[in-house]
């Protein structure tokens, strides 16, 4: 039965407003990019089927508003998450600096059973801008931060140029999936908001 199980991975994208969360999601799912900025209100999501090794999983990618406060969506929103993607803009120091806040708040809200090993992912977006000349957060600095938080995998992406987007999301799926435990004898194909995700594995290897 396990093979027939249809896996749904809930991925939540967090980060300051304007760093490109929606664009990344759109690029990954719809292969589209728009220069027009339209603030996300509350949360929105897209789904995409992804092949991870031999398994077909459905990624449910929740894009949140950068201005969003956690309390607005309620804890249930975060509890079911299988992976949390933190996005910042490499050209904007502040967006990088607030990654810690986003991470911490996520852990508070989602309260995963094993916070140390909950799969995060950091994406430094907008590397395309100005040929990289305007970037203020170096890759090294970002990687250092990621390492300090438990080896969070890090990618530099450009939603506009579709750089690393697929790779990153593949890795996200893989990570999230790794954390799935064997306990799921049966899995209702609904999102299980009530039970915290129990993830035990370590971070991504890709």
């Amino acid at each position: 039965m396990a093979t027939r199980k249809r896996t749904l991975l809930k991925v939540i994208i967090l980060g300051d407003s304007g760093v490109g969360k929606t664009s990344l999601m759109n690029q990954f799912v719809n292969k589209k990019f728009s220069n027009q900025y339209k603030a996300t209100i509350g949360a929105d999501f897209l789904t995409k089927e992804v092949q991870v090794e031999d398994r077909l999983v459905t990624m449910q990618i929740w894009d949140t508003a950068g201005q969003e406060r956690f309390q607005s969506l309620g804890v249930a929103f975060y509890r079911g998450a299988d992976c949390c993607v933190l996005v910042y803009d490499v050209n904007l120091l502040k967006s990088f600096e607030s990654l810690s806040n986003w991470r911490d708040e996520f852990l508070v809200q989602a309260s995963p059973s094993d916070p140390e090993n909950f799969p995060f992912m950091v994406l430094g977006n907008k590397v395309d801008i100005d040929g990289g000349n305007s970037r203020v957060v170096s890759e090294k600095r970002a990687k250092t931060w990621c390492a300090s938080k438990g080896d969070i995998p890090y990618f530099e992406t450009s939603a506009k140029d579709d750089l690393n987007v697929d790779v990153a999301f593949q890795c996200i799926a893989k990570n999230a999936l790794k954390n799935e435990t064997d306990e799921e004898i049966y899995l209702p194909d609904t999102i299980d908001f009530s039970s915290g995700s129990t993830h035990t594995s370590s971070s991504c290897s890709c």
Binding site: I41, G42, A43, D44, G74, A76, F77, F193
Partner: peptide, 21 residues
Amino acid sequence: VELGVEPQFFALRWFRILFGR
């Protein structure tokens, strides 16, 4: 409710901008 569809997931956008989107 059984499916776990919480109202704020969609109502947040509806209410905040008074259905503007």
